Simulated assay, not measured.
Amino acid sequence: MTIEFPAPTTPAAGQAEVFVRYLDYFRETVLARVAALPPAELHRSRLPSGWTPLELIKHLRYVELRWIEWGFEGRPVPEPWGDRQDDRWHVTPDETAATLTASLRSQGIRTTEVVLGSSLAATGAPGPRWEGAEPATLERVLFHLLQEYARHAGHLDVVAELAGGPVGE
């Protein structure tokens, strides 16, 4: 699935819709870039930091989970750091590109529901996500998610190019 870049001139019903469009765009851009890689590259790292494309997909799913459900909504999450093991990203042998992609898209649907059903000015529920600080507003959380996606999409552009995959813009 490819999504057209959400140009600033495209009308939107409000700021929440703009955030959702950009999150959808970055999420699908990352997934398309990973899907275009040769299968052998999915578990291979091309960088000194050692992360793999599949680990990135899992990480982004957990980023959304941590900030939206565990943070903003204050819901209990059994393993909020389930994308990490021994202080680095990881995937288990039974996690595939298909299962991780489905998980990220499912998390994206949940994020969209929360964003469109909440005020951007609403403050997150108190809880461990905030590490003792005052909870942020949904708007601030969404700005954080966008920068996280944009940064990681750029990282993945470099990895894909080194792996002989599609070249980013």
Score class of each variant (00 low, 15 high):
E4S: 13
E134I: 06
S118C: 10
A16C: 05
A133Q: 15
L145G: 08
T10S: 09
D24G: 01
E4P: 03
E41R: 04
P135L: 09
L120M: 11
L23P: 00
L47T: 14
V167M: 11
A163R: 11
T111E: 13
G132P: 08
P166L: 12
L145I: 14
P48R: 05
F72A: 01
G14N: 15
R129Q: 15
A36S: 13
L100M: 02
E161K: 11
A163H: 10
R33A: 10
R110Y: 14
G168I: 09
L37I: 02
T112N: 12
R105N: 02
P166G: 14
L47G: 03
A150R: 02
Q107S: 08
R88L: 00
R46M: 09
A7T: 12
A97P: 01
D24I: 00
H59W: 08
A121T: 09
L146H: 08
I109T: 15
E79R: 03
A163C: 13
E69T: 05
R44P: 04
A136F: 11
H155F: 08
L37M: 09
A36D: 14
F19A: 01
E113G: 11
E69K: 02
E134H: 14
Y62P: 08
P135C: 07
P78G: 01
W70M: 04
H43M: 02
G124T: 00
L65F: 12
P76T: 06
A136R: 15
T9R: 14
T9D: 15
E17H: 10
L65R: 14
L138D: 10
P128L: 11
L104W: 03
G164E: 14
P76G: 06
R129N: 14
P166I: 11
T52Y: 03
E64H: 11
F26M: 02
S103Q: 03
V114Q: 13
E55N: 04
D87S: 10
D24Q: 06
P80C: 01
G71C: 09
W51G: 01
D87A: 07
V30C: 02
P53A: 04
E131Q: 14
R151D: 13
L100C: 01
L156T: 04
P166Q: 15
A32C: 03
R46E: 07
H43K: 10
L145N: 07
R129V: 03
D86T: 05
P39Q: 05
G132M: 11
Q147F: 08
H155G: 05
V63H: 10
R88V: 01
T29N: 04
L60F: 08
E69Q: 07
Q85W: 07
L162R: 13
G124A: 07
G108P: 05
V167T: 13
L37C: 07
K58P: 06
E73I: 00
W130H: 07
D94R: 04
F26S: 00
